[in-house]
Design a protein around this nucleic acid. Structure first.
Lengths: 214, 214
DNA sequence: AATAAAATCAAACATTTGTTTGATTTTATT
DNA sequence: AATAAAATCAAACAAATGTTTGATTTTATT
């Protein structure tokens, strides 16, 4: 599906509101007001509120598609290099698309609110798990990864940590007395912290080598 | 605040529906129907829908209160023993109160939907962090924990992993071909898996000793 | 410049929402 | 058994919801 600038602007406004107030908690009048358009334009462009969130998902998921595959199917990288690049890209994507991943999280918490979106998410998860399995078996073949590790639990920790970190960023900021940083600076700070933390955990749990705290 | 059996039954029904459909996505008519009561009883007992979810929080948070303190302030345990017991209790509580923690997660994702509930959650987090800091400094004094570790990031990983695991339990179940297990059996299976996984990650990251995959 | 198509709008639509009312039934107290 | 208090109910309330309508304006095409 192709969307014009107007549609994309509506999608972006909706994304922000859904992330802040939830899908059910956001009215199309909220969206119309913030996007500075008439309420009827949402039905006009997308058909319905439900179709609007589906449009949001289809746009954002298309973005992820290529990145992931390119990294993991690159033949010139070792397993350990791929892990590093992959973790960077996961953390980066979650931070860059905070609002969207907030919504994804909410949809996962709802048991089957929307068939279409459940399918979207399931599809994405399956593709990720698949690529990760390849990466892990490459690591095992290279002799750098332990065998018989529960990959799905490891991914649960990676995604869970990033989600939790972003959901609690305000708390983390206060706790570590980082209020003096600007929004932008703090984002960068948290991004780096998360990358280091996750690489440390991942490599320490999965690889045969031991890595110290930096 | 004290609640009778009827009120507690309403709270429990509401808890289930809020977890499934979100706060805004659940109408008081949904709750009334499932609890088999008249719609007006919710206002009659609690005052409003908002006050109902506050009642839910006050009931469930009171439960957590004591457990945590008892474990961590016990003088007879080593830091490592406390970590083990604490992790067991965290995972156990999240699994036992899936619905409630689903709601807590949602409320964390909403930026300040409700002042009262934000304050509830903030209070709980602060108390936890406080106790954990004590535990960590005990471990450092005992010489079993590394110094200069970011405790808040470690807790982010613990809570994030448990949340993510529970939010994705259906996916995990399918992925690992565990559909033959009953709901009850699967819960126990996941509980054990999570405990082992988190202890492994925590101890491997935080302690000076090295622990192998079991 | 004339015509057709697309975009925008205020208003109306039917539902659904949380809450209140006022009457009635049930339970507890005297 | 009489009285008071608590619980329950159907109905009504106003406000908010997602969507549609039909007229009007803007843009694109001929």
């Amino acid at each position: 599906m192709e969307y014009g600038t107007k549609q994309l602007q509506i999608i972006e406004v909706a994304e922000g509101l859904f992330a802040k107030k939830g899908f059910a908690g956001t009215s199309i009048r909220d969206i119309a007001q913030e996007a500075d358009i008439n309420v009827s334009m949402i039905s006009y462009y997308f058909g319905s509120k439900e179709k609007l969130i589906e449009a949001l998902f289809s746009v954002r998921m298309a973005e992820t598609e290529t990145t992931m595959v390119n990294i993991l199917e690159n033949q010139d990288l070792t397993a350990m290099q791929k892990v590093n690049i992959w973790l960077d890209s996961v953390v980066g994507r979650f931070m860059f698309r905070k609002n969207f991943h907030n919504i994804v999280m909410r949809e996962q918490l709802s048991s089957n609110r929307s068939e279409t979106i459940t399918a979207f998410i399931m599809d994405l998860k399956m593709r990720h798990i698949d690529l990760m399995k390849q990466l892990i078996s490459l690591g095992i073949r290279e002799g750098v990864f332990k065998e018989n590790l529960d990959m799905s639990l490891m991914m649960t920790t990676i995604y869970g940590t990033v989600n939790q970190a972003i959901a609690n960023q305000d708390f983390y900021r206060r706790l570590n007395q980082l209020e003096h940083l600007s929004e932008e600076e703090f984002n960068l700070y948290l991004l780096e912290k998360l990358k280091v933390h996750l690489k440390f955990i991942f490599i320490n749990s999965v690889s045969n080598e031991q890595q110290g705290l930096n």
